[in-house]
Every structure is written in structure tokens, then in C-alpha cells.
Design a protein around this nucleic acid. Structure first.
Lengths: 210, 210, 210, 210
DNA sequence: GATGAATGAGTTTTCATTCAT
DNA sequence: GATGAATGAAAACTCATTCAT
């Protein structure tokens, strides 16, 4: 949240910065969805944001800053939604299913945003990349934690490394729902997709930790 | 192969077309790896290919043609390697493991190429996209087939839709090894990665098809 | 002094105008020294002056006004210093030496300012140029007067035109000390420079007026 | 001459480079004369040169390269003219007069060019400045040499440092004729100016070396 | 078939100036 | 009187593409 201040602005009023950047991000995302980062011009972003090109540059330094702001914001949104959905005391099979379902649902809702983000991440300036990758790992950590507690409660002994891999798998399967919609949508509803992926996982891990 | 003729050239000599395009693709891939499609100029590609910008345009119509050629060629390479690795009569658990291992190995070897391809696919001209997505499905089909035969041999009844999902999972896990190397490489060797993913899958599906 | 009122201000309080403009000129000179007039932005000038861009524009109309104010101020400073240094009743060879030395010393002290002024004068709006050139001639006149009195006292007959040329020479040699410091500093101290230039001049003119 | 290759061009044909750069320099000088370097746009230069903005940038990298090319070319022109005018075996008072007269004449002819050059030199990129200042010193050296031979032939003993100063004076007086034309033209013809400056110098130095 | 010079529309970014608060 | 957010014209520079040789 306050990390957005990573990108300097020549405007002083922080309240205003927040407002304008929100407009900017909103405008940018819808353009990036349509034509990608490189084919979107800063002028278009300014226009879509509802202000002039001059004003746009009062709130960022370079076009790449916009991309960073966009990625940052999408991560925050996803994370916030996930964290709101997942706080279980006791972790059972059912809990895991709910967790995965919640996450997949979010990825379904934010499909376009997520698509944009992962396709343009490579265009981020080198120095901003680590910040973004860190956020990705934080999301993995959410499921690592969930799985770890599941195994602990079951009394199974599974290595951290293995758990991490399963968590990565979950995260990637969520993204996959967005990225491969051209193929998956024809055959699965989100519910079916969720159910089958969950079963595959739970059967797999229960077998392993036996 | 002959599909490459999708991209017209003003040169007649097909032998020459093939040679020049190979040079082009090779040069382009190494540039795309480094700086991505959009940040690579046609001049750079011409130079890296060993001929002039004028000559480059004798063999393609637009810059995007190069991207198509590149994607097409990478797919062909991956497919060819996979098909060479997988032709089993009898499909057992072991066979599946070998299949996955072969595929992951190929994805590991062609890591950069695959990264490039999936990140730039969205820049393909609309009309070329289906061709490329079709190739993606062909790759999925390879594992669909493998799994189908595995279940048949086991006498399990599993729906095509479910099998297709598992196949997608395998394909995505191969790509994931390339895309998330920044995170995975720290914790897993390709062998460990392969083994764990295989176990998760086989345990999962054996359980399901019981 | 009152000529500065050439530049209109929307502020009424003349005392305030003076204060603000002094701050402005000081800030501007140091920036112009560093990066020249064109590469300095009005925002930077406002900041260096200690007030906002809005306030800056309460005291000037255009960026060029600042340049005028700067030039004007430097001339005033040089002139004032010269006039303070030169008021001789009786003009002898020695007096001339003192005059030249005083002038060169001032040019040495105000080196950066003078450099700035002469390099940016051409950027003054056409209508302000005459005012500034007039000041330049006033400085020439100081030495014309000195030389005229020297010749009169010696009883030599030398034309006004010739005297004017010598005066121009002196003025230019002072500027030259600033402009060519990159070359002169390596070989001469200000004292040596002054002495040799003075000797060359005095020997030259004494010979001529014989 | 070959030093112009200091500025890289993406065009290979050196003959063409020379032609285009000549056009460019010619166009640029006339624009710089009129409005200075900063107020002249690259598009204007391209247009004045008779080709498109794209073509302009095939022959230079940045706008500042043009300034360098312009300065370089003016120096070369001045130097070449001077060297053609001055090659005396025996150096007498008369020779010196001829030398000065020739130099002043050149400065009179190339007045605008010289004005442009000295006013914009400060805008040269840092790394190009030394090249240009070196050329300035070469011009000083021409007169150092002349004066040295004059004194030697007369048998006078005068230090190198003193001679260098006189040479600088000559160079500066030539420039002064261009820079202060607004004041000097009213009172002197080039001939009168030359004659009086020569007399002042020769009387001065003859007196000194006595 | 190969070359590379020419083109100019299009891109990012800057900055003097205004004006509502 | 002071502030600083907003503006948009203008600037430097790029690059895919063409076409005469």
C-alpha cells in the first residue's frame, strides 16, 4: 500500500496522488488488456485516465512506472481478497478445498488483470522486478501455510520443500485457469475445474503423506 | 513444415527461403531472449541473421511474421523432440514417468525459447494465433493419449474431460519449470521436480480411478 | 535600478518586488552558471529562490524576464564596483594601471557571472537587447574617459576613435580573462596577466601618441 | 577532416556521409545564426538540409552531434584559410601586419559562423569540448610561431609566455571584430581597425623587447 | 536476389505558463 | 500574495517499411 510511494511523483498532495493513480491504473489496465503494454501509448493512458498527458507525468516518471503501479495494484487486490477469504483455525480437507476454490474464484474474477500482469511483468525495469516477485512468493506462502497446518493436524510428516511445490502448483493452476481459458472454457466450468483439481491434489498428497 | 509457407516471401527459391529463415529465426530467438520482441528492432534481427534489412524483407512481410516463424519453429522443435521420446506400445506407470521426464527435460533444455514464445504469443497477429494454439493442443493431446492408454490398460473408467485436464496439468507444469525458475531453481533439481510432480499426479489419478 | 521596473509584476508592494527579485536573481545565476539558461527550468529557479512556481510568475512575465533581470543585475554590480574603484583627479600612467588592475580584478571575482551573462545575452528578447548593450558601452566609456584624460594631461593629440578602440580593448581583455581561463590559467596569474597587458597597452599608446 | 568520423553514422557510404553532412552543416549554420542552437529544432535542420528527419538521424546520433560538426567545420575552414594566407620565410613587421590583416579578414568574412560557434560552444557535450579547445589553441599557435620568428629575427629576447599572451590577444581581437560589430562597425572600417590594432601591438612589443 | 539509404508517422517526455483555491 | 496542480504544444529521437540501384 504505502509501497506505492516507491514511484516518485512531483505532486505533493498524497491524497491526490492516490486518486490520480487509481484513475491511471484503471485506465491503463483496460488498455493493456486490449492491446498490451507496448502497444498502448502514454497519451492513450492519460486520456483513459481522464486527464492530460502533462498531468500523467506529474504522477509518474516513466511509462514503466505505470506498469509497476498496475502490477503492484493487481497483486494487492488479489492478496487482499485471498487473505479475506482464508482464515481458518482448524484446517481440514474441506478447508483446503475452500481455500483453493476461493483463490480460483478470485483468479476467475480478475482474469484479465492477471493475464495482463503476467504477460507484461518482463517489461518491468530490472530494479522493480524483485518487489513484484516477492509478492508472488507471498501468495505461494499463503498456501504453504495452509498445507503445512493440514499435514500437522493430520500428523503427517512432509518436507517443507514438498509442501512448497504443492503450493506453487495451486498458484499456477489458478493462473492457468486464466491463461488457458481459450482451451479450458470449452470443457469445464469453474466449479468442475476446481473440484477436479482439488481431488487430484488431495488424493495425491494424502497418498504421499501416508 | 509446409505450414511455414503461410508466410509469403517474394523470393522463389524455396531452398533459399528455408536457409534464410533458419538464420533469421536463430538470430531472432537470441535477441528476443535478451530483450523481448518489442524491444528488438528489425535491423538488429537482420544483422544477427547475417544479412541486410532489405534482404530480411524479401523473406517476410512484417516484423510479426518473424515472431510467427519463431513460435512455429519452437513448437516444431518441442513436438518433434517429444514425439521422438514417446512411442510406447504398452503404457505403464513407468512409461508415464518416462514421458513426463522426457517432456520436462525438453522444457528445461529449451527453457529460453519456451519463455520467449509464451511471453510474446499475444503479439501475434490475430489471424495467426489459432495456428499456434492448435499446436499447443497437439502437445496436450500427446499426454491425453498416454493417459488414456494408461487407464485403458488398467481397466479404469475415467472421462475424457478428466484426462484432458490432467494432460493440461502436465503441460503447464513443464512450462512452469521454465517460467518460475527464479523460484524453483533454488529448491529443486529437475530430477526432484520431476519425481515429485510425477508422484503427485500418479497418486492422485490412481486414487481417483479406483 | 528603476530600470528594473521595465519588467512588470502583478505584485504592488515594491519593497517585496525587490526582495523577491533578489532571491530570484541569486538562485538563477547559480543555476545558469551550472547549466546555462536553456537547460535551467523555471521550476528549478523557483525552488532555488525559495518560493513556488506560482509566486515566481507573480514577479515576472516570462522566463526571459529572469535572464534580463540577471544581466541587468550583473552589469550594475560590475559598474558599481568599477566606479567605486576609479575616481582619480589626476590621471597618470600609474592611474591607468590601477584602473585596469581594478577592472580585471572585478572580472576575476565575478568570473562566473560574467561568463553567464555574455553567453546568454543572445537569448534576450530583441527589445531588451539595446538596454543591455547600452550598459556595455557605459563600461567602455569609463575607460575612454580615463584614457582621454591621460592623453590630455600628457598633451598628446589622439583621436576619440582611437581612444575608443583602446577602451574596447581593455574591456575585452577583462572578459577574455574569464572566457579563456581554461587556457590562460595554466600560464598566468592575474597579476602577471594584468602587468603584461598593461605594459603592452601603455607602450603601444605612448609610442603612438608621440 | 577525417576527424569528423568522430561522430558515428549508421550509413556506410563515406562519400555520402560527407555530402549529407555538408548539407546538414550548411543548413544548421544558417538556422543557428538566426535563432541559436537551442531554439532550432532538429526537424528544421532536416528541412533546411533538404532531407527528412529520419535521414538526418542516419548521419548523427544526437542534436549535439550537429553542433559539434558545425564547430568542427568552422574551425577547419578558418584554419585552412589562415594557413593558406600565412607562410612566410622571413618574418618582418610587414609580415606580421599581413598575418593579422589576413586573419581579421577571415574573421570578417566568417563573422556569422564564428559568432555562432563561440556562442554555442558551451552546449557541446563535455567529451567533445577538448577537441574543440585544442583547435582554438592551434590557432593561437599560428601567431605564436609568427611572433617567435619575428623576435628571433630581430634578436630580441622575449619569453614564450609573453609571446603566447600576444598571440591570444590577436586571436581575441579577431573574434572581437565579430562579436562587437554592433559597436565597432559604427566607428571603424575593417582596414582602420586592422591598422590601429596592428600599430598598438607592434609599438607595444617593440618597446618591450628593446 | 541483395543492399542499404530514405522516409515520416508515431513515441515518450519536458516545461513554460495559467488559474482555481 | 502564495501555492502547486493542470495543461498541451513542442521537442528529440526511433524504427518498420520501401524502393532505386
Amino acid at each position: 500500500m504505502s509501497e506505492k510511494q516507491t514511484v516518485p511523483s512531483s505532486v505533493k498532495d498524497t491524497r491526490l496522488i492516490q486518486i490520480r493513480r487509481e484513475q491511471m491504473i484503471k485506465g491503463a489496465i483496460s488498455l493493456f488488456k486490449e492491446k498490451g503494454f507496448h502497444r498502448t501509448t502514454t497519451r492513450e493512458i492519460a486520456k483513459a485516465s481522464g486527464f492530460s498527458i502533462g498531468t500523467l507525468y506529474e504522477y509518474i516518471r516513466t511509462k514503466e512506472d505505470i506498469l509497476y503501479l498496475v502490477c503492484d495494484q493487481i497483486y494487492d487486490e488479489v492478496q487482499e481478497k485471498i487473505k479475506r477469504a482464508l482464515h481458518f483455525r482448524h484446517v481440514t480437507k474441506e478447508t483446503i478445498k475452500e481455500g483453493i476454490a476461493a483463490y480460483f474464484k478470485i483468479m476467475d474474477e480478475l482474469q484479465d488483470e492477471v493475464l495482463v500482469m503476467y504477460q507484461e511483468i518482463k517489461s518491468l525495469p530490472r530494479e522493480m522486478l524483485p518487489v513484484v516477485l516477492k509478492k508472488e512468493l507471498e501468495m505461494v506462502a499463503v498456501f504453504e501455510d495452509l498445507l503445512r497446518r493440514y499435514f500437522d493436524q493430520k500428523g503427517s510428516v512432509v518436507s517443507d520443500e514438498q509442501i512448497r511445490l504443492y503450493a506453487h502448483n495451486i498458484i499456477v493452476q489458478g493462473q492457468m485457469w486464466g491463461f488457458r481459458r481459450w482451451a479450458l472454457r470449452k470443457h469445464y466450468t469453474l466449479e468442475k475445474y476446481t473440484e477436479w483439481q482439488f481431488h487430484l491434489l488431495i488424493n495425491g498428497i494424502d497418498q504421499i503423506s501416508k
